[in-house]
Design a protein around this nucleic acid. Sequence first.
RNA 1: GCGGGAGUAGCUCAGUUGGUAGAGCGAUAGCCUUCCAAGCUAUAGGUCGCGGGUUCGAGCCUCGUCUCCCGCUCCA
Length: 514
Amino acid sequence: MATQEDNLFKNVIAHAKEYGFIFPSSEIYDGLSAVYDYGQNGAELKNNLKEYWWKFMTLLHDNIVGIDAAIFMHPTTWKASGHVDAFNDPMIDNKDSKKRYRADVLVEDAITKMEDKIEKEVEKAAKRFGDSFNRETFVTTNARVLEYQKKIDETNARLKDAMGSGNMAAMKQLIVDLDIADPISGTKNWTDVRQFNLMFSTEIGSLADEANKIYLRPETAQGIFVNFLNVQKTGRMKIPFGIAQIGKAFRNEIVARQFIFRMREFEQMEMQFFIKPGEEMKWYEYWKAKRMKWHQTLGLGSDNYRFHDHLNLAHYANAACDIQFNFPMGFKELEGIHSRTDFDLKNHEKYSGKKLQYFDSDDNQSYIPYVVETSVGLDRLFLSVLSKAYTEEKLEDGSDRVVLRIPAPLAPHKVAILPLMKKDGLPEKAEAIMNELKYDLRCFYEEKDAIGRRYRRQDAIGTPYCITVDHQTLEDDTVTIRDRDTMKQERVKIADVKAKLIDVCSINNLLRKI
RNA sequence: GCGGGAGUAGCUCAGUUGGUAGAGCGAUAGCCUUCCAAGCUAUAGGUCGCGGGUUCGAGCCUCGUCUCCCGCUCCA
């Protein structure tokens, strides 16, 4: 199914490599799975996206400041955050169906089934006894129900024990004892339970032992939480306020695919907004709306975004949703907005023994602030721009054109400066114009090949404007500006070029539209 | 990780029953040319993903391995 879209996605990936946006990591050694490098054009586009986000957060909100925390953090950080537990998934495969499951989820499903059986007994009894039925008495006295309940309690205890100790053999035994069958194949032909740790680890210092083990951060948020008091005190921040950060995070995904959508090393742009407890839903809604507006202002088409509420909340959240984008492979998460309550600060307080509270002079009391988080995957944002910008066109004259309709403020190069011919002083004139523009606009100079071919090459890397220097330029100091999207040309005075281009290519102007 | 498919020049691909690697486009240099990729000339690029095996001889057969794509799973 969707072969046309699959092809489109493949073409986007091929185009990204061919035109210097994204290369497979260490490609000469056959690459490294799910790791990619940004090329000369990709790095520019990515930096522009960062600037758009960073300025929106820190320039346009006087109560948000930015930090840049280290990737390495004290190991206890990840115990407090819950990642040591939550990122250790026990997995088991059914040898017949070849499907993989989380072992703890299988056990939980089995427990649910037993609970259903109790409910059935209750329903049957309720029918039998009519009005005189008392649920409380029934479930505490009925032999069959008590037996089920005993089994449930026992299973829960064993599950908790196995998960807590990381005893995978006990987990396997639990699945065997519960007689769990694969819902697909119906067989009980299981592999051993294996632990997958989603955090990368290494050692600090020269001793490679467990005591020196540290992790590469699986999310950037904790760097903000552990610095909450530092920033609040040194910046004299008053609640509500936010801390923003752009940085790398690492996850050892079991399967990481779909190009840069899911990578083992990726970049997040996160903002943690600290608020008074009880006001979280107000701010949650506020940031949902703000972030959606920010995305839509990029101009990739408002229809390509939608909210998706989380039904199963993560261990830290009391409300959560995604902003999804219409990627080539369908609507997928682009940004997460989470109401994290006081989970993180409370736990850091507990594990560190340091008070992480805010004294609110409005009502003279200290409290652990609640947090609303906005978290964009920068690489996903990049993919959203690239995949929507990529367009294959059939022109009226029958020729083909591939054009990246990247929003002008994000484009790697803002303008290409092209002498029509490589003689008659045209290159010199073009160079003079470039020297005028290059301090304000990223320029690309090219004099080789026919002009039409040069235009197409600029289309392929998304340069929004081409300035062509022709013989008339030498006479009256005018040039033509060719528009990437319409392919139309307009003749303007050299003196007017700079202001005209800066106006449409500036990130600051884009920010004004939010 | 498991199952399925793929890997030959920068790109798209051809390569016969095993006989020692080609094309188009692109790139580079030069010529020609006043506006939307296809004018002319020349040049450079490949131990055929990598490593064993069979064979007189392997791009082709065989085994292993790596990477990519699709599905299962997970997530920003």
